Simulated scan of single mutants.
Amino acid sequence: MFKVAFDLEPERPGWPPVSVERLWGEKTDVRMEIKLVNTPFFARGIAFGDLVRVRPDHERRELVFEEFTAESGHSAIRIVFIGDAERSAVEARLREAGCSWESAGQFGSLVAVDIPPAVDYRELRSWLVGKVDAGSIEIQESALSQVHRRQLPS
């Protein structure tokens, strides 16, 4: 397993709250290519299982993301909970849909959600948007695979 550094550009003041996100990955048979094995919190355009090309940064002593090479079919979204009232219901719905998620202690209200290719994202998204409309969560679709984009209305 290797860590890959993703340098992040500020999207607005204070966001993302870090300048670098490091994700776990494993080598493939292609030189300098890594398969990601966790879901990003802040890096956009990548998801669990995606393939990325990396370069060694000898000064920083780490592998750094260079370019996206292939998608896995997984999608990544972020959910921010507005209070704790709906957290159990949202987590139960994600589990029922076949999704997994990661949370980080320092960002307690934020979860990074992996949506596998077999998940009906149209239905899940509709349910999540209802929670957004109710004011209990915010969502950000950070990487939607071709599989999930095809499920959404044009």
Results as ranks from 00 to 15, higher is better:
residue 36 L to F: 04
residue 38 N to A: 03
residue 38 N to I: 05
residue 40 P to T: 10
residue 40 P to G: 01
residue 41 F to L: 11
residue 43 A to N: 09
residue 44 R to N: 04
residue 44 R to D: 04
residue 50 D to E: 11
residue 52 V to S: 02
residue 54 V to W: 02
residue 57 D to S: 11
residue 58 H to K: 13
residue 62 E to G: 00
residue 62 E to S: 06
residue 63 L to D: 06
residue 65 F to Y: 15
residue 66 E to W: 02
residue 69 T to W: 02
residue 69 T to Y: 05
residue 70 A to G: 07
residue 72 S to N: 09
residue 75 S to Q: 08
residue 75 S to A: 12
residue 75 S to M: 04
residue 78 R to M: 07
residue 80 V to N: 09
residue 81 F to N: 03
residue 83 G to I: 04
residue 83 G to F: 11
residue 85 A to S: 14
residue 85 A to N: 09
residue 86 E to L: 10
residue 87 R to C: 00
residue 88 S to I: 07
residue 91 E to D: 07
residue 93 R to Y: 04
residue 96 E to H: 14
residue 97 A to T: 12
residue 98 G to C: 06
residue 99 C to T: 02
residue 102 E to N: 14
residue 105 G to C: 00
residue 106 Q to N: 12
residue 106 Q to D: 11
residue 106 Q to M: 08
residue 108 G to F: 13
residue 109 S to H: 13
residue 111 V to D: 08
residue 112 A to N: 03
residue 114 D to I: 00
residue 115 I to G: 06
residue 117 P to C: 09
residue 117 P to V: 12
residue 117 P to L: 10
residue 117 P to M: 12
residue 119 V to E: 00
residue 122 R to W: 09
residue 122 R to S: 14
residue 123 E to S: 15
residue 124 L to I: 11
residue 124 L to M: 08
residue 125 R to K: 15
residue 131 K to P: 00
residue 132 V to Q: 06
residue 136 S to Q: 08
residue 136 S to G: 06
residue 138 E to F: 04
residue 140 Q to D: 14
residue 141 E to G: 05
residue 144 L to F: 10
residue 145 S to A: 11
residue 145 S to K: 03
